[in-house]
């Protein structure tokens, strides 16, 4: 099982080795997608893979440690009305979550492939891409 989580850190929690613990203690594979943490706390977006039970206990550990945990289904949203389907985004998306459909010539956004890296946000001329985290 795989899930994406937004973690909110207060100053105390920001010093905890949470990714190490999730891996070592709960056997979860942690992929850090975004991280902005300093002495006053911050946010991290991770994708965790592992057994459903382990993810559940991992999340409980995080909450007990004072880390805010919010699961996300989507990290980046596209405004379909604003998108002109120009395709500027397709060559810069590192996970090929944005691709051109060769039949319709429209840009397809495969949300399940998006890792919310945000590289498309400021590249989009009609500003159709929005990062939610």
């Amino acid at each position: 099982m795989k899930t994406k989580l937004v973690l909110n850190f207060n100053p105390e929690a920001s010093n905890l080795p949470i990714t190490h613990n999730l891996t070592a203690k709960y056997g979860l594979l942690v992929n850090i997608l975004r991280a902005e943490i300093d002495e006053v706390g911050g946010k991290m977006v991770i994708e965790v893979s592992g057994k459903a039970d382990s993810i559940k206990t991992g999340i409980s550990y995080l909450k007990e440690a004072g880390v805010g945990v919010r699961p996300i289904k989507e990290g980046v949203r596209r405004d379909d009305e604003a998108c002109t389907h120009c395709g500027v985004c397709i060559s810069i998306c590192p996970t090929k979550a944005l691709i051109l459909d060769s039949k319709t010539h429209k840009v397809i956004f495969k949300e399940e492939k998006c890792v919310a890296c945000g590289v498309c946000i400021d590249a989009c001329p009609p500003r159709a891409m929005e990062i939610l985290i």
């Binding site: 389907h85 120009c86 397709i90 810069i92 051109l100 010539h105 840009v107």
Partner: peptide
């Protein structure tokens, strides 16, 4: 095609012009 060769490297391409429109 989505990729071009520049100096032996495969470089991904993007149109700025909307073929759809």
């Amino acid at each position: 095609s989505g990729e071009v060769d520049i100096k032996g490297r495969r470089v991904p391409t993007s149109p700025l012009s909307s073929i759809y429109k």
